[in-house]
Amino acid sequence: MSLAILSEPAPLAVNPDGVVRVGGTRVTLDTIVAAFKQGATAEEIVHRYPSLRLGDVYASIAYYLNHQQEVDAYLKQRQQQAQEIRQMNQVRFDPQGLARSVTGSQG
């Protein structure tokens, strides 16, 4: 009996906002890669995020290792977008003004 080697697609899907999610869960590729870069094993990642399947985590890590340049570019873009959103929110919702209104209403 011989083993049939089948190619499976990476368990990654891009949502309408352009965010890559893993295995049909809400967990992002960003999360998996960050944990992996911090030294977490696939088993530890599944323990932290129980909605993930171990095979999907291994496949996501393999995808990252095989496409590191593209994934790193995606992660850099996501970080830039997050920074832009933070800056827009700081302009729109001045944290100093919020603190003053909270302390001013305690009188």
Rank of each mutant, 00 (worst) to 15 (best):
G97C: 04
R100P: 14
R21G: 05
L65D: 06
G97F: 04
H47Q: 14
L12K: 10
L6Y: 05
A73M: 08
E44K: 15
T103W: 06
H47N: 15
E43D: 09
I5P: 12
L65W: 06
R48P: 04
P11E: 11
A59Y: 01
G23C: 10
S7M: 11
A34F: 03
A10I: 07
H47S: 07
S2N: 15
V22A: 00
E43M: 08
T31W: 09
P11W: 01
L12W: 00
V57G: 00
V71K: 01
Q83R: 13
A73C: 03
H47C: 04
I61C: 01
S51R: 14
R26E: 15
Y58N: 13
P50E: 08
G97D: 04
Q83F: 14
A10G: 15
R92E: 03
Q83S: 08
L75R: 13
V33P: 10
V102Q: 14
P9Y: 06
A35E: 14
A13Y: 11
L3Y: 15
S51L: 11
Y49S: 11
R21Q: 09
I45T: 12
N89A: 08
S7Q: 15
V91N: 13
L6G: 06
R92Y: 07
A4Q: 10
V33A: 04
M88G: 12
T41P: 00
L29I: 03
S51M: 05
V57S: 00
A35P: 09
R92G: 01
A42G: 14
T41M: 03
A10S: 06
G24V: 07
R53W: 01
P95Y: 03
K37F: 07
Y74I: 01
F93H: 13
S7F: 12
N15H: 10
G24E: 09
V27A: 06
A4P: 13
E8V: 13
Q87D: 09
Q83C: 03
R53G: 07
Q90Y: 15
Q79H: 06
P9G: 15
V22F: 01
V22L: 01
K76L: 02
I45F: 01
D72S: 05
Y58S: 04
E70C: 01
V46I: 04
V20N: 02
D56Q: 12
A99Q: 10
V46N: 07
